[in-house]
Amino acid sequence: MNASDNAVLSLSRVNKFFGGVHAVAEMTFSVEKGGLTGLIGPNGAGKTTIFNLVTGVYPIDSGEILFKGGSLVGRKSHDIIHLGIARTFQNLRLFHRSTVLENVMTACQHHHRYSFFEALSHLGRWKKEEKVISAKSLELLERVGLADRAYQAAGTLPYGYQRRLEIARALALEPELLLLDEPAAGMNPEEVQALNGLISDIHRDFSLTILVIEHHMDLVMEICPHIVCMNFGAKIAEGGPEEIQNHPEVLKAYLGEEVVDE
């Protein structure tokens, strides 16, 4: 597939090896601006590795990753984030002992800066900017339904709420592209349903482009009009939900091959 002009993120022939393991093989796909793309595949397929390559956690071995036309290859994680990409983590990386609000404020502060000396003296813009930061953070918490838990330690939240907090924290970076890594992991069906609504809502209200890794097929099939399926580091199928559901390679990856007795 050619990287269309409308692509926010495009990977072309990306490779990544971990020792002898070909974790990502010739991966090529792109995420349309304003789209909600699902990235699926069995465990160990290399989905999270893709996120780690995009956000600069690991360097890629070959290929090209473009964000809004500019290359991300060789950039440091913190630079990539400032270009407008935010992500959540499969294994939750919250600041457990800080409060819920503080977690969001930490991410929120990039857009409301004040100088080192204002931080040291609490003079000047400190008061005004801190007010804006905490107000905006509370608003985001309200958005994901955690406003009443703002002052408790993040580590004491139930699992499902911790995932929502990660989303709020990522939104505080005001990204254009949001990468969600298994946001529904460990959730029960009702929670997944609520999360579904949340993802669709923020996608619309923040005019985001979202790439979501998910194991819950019903979530992906319901909210993602465009799905990429990978297995053993390589793309095996791409298309709409219908197409993916009936794709022979996808069925093979998830359900295994029919064994024919000879």
Binding site: H82, R87, L94
Partner: peptide
């Protein structure tokens, strides 16, 4: 969490 910190910019 320094990984999370760098991925928060």
């Amino acid at each position: 969490d320094h990984v999370a910190a760098s991925l928060l910019g």
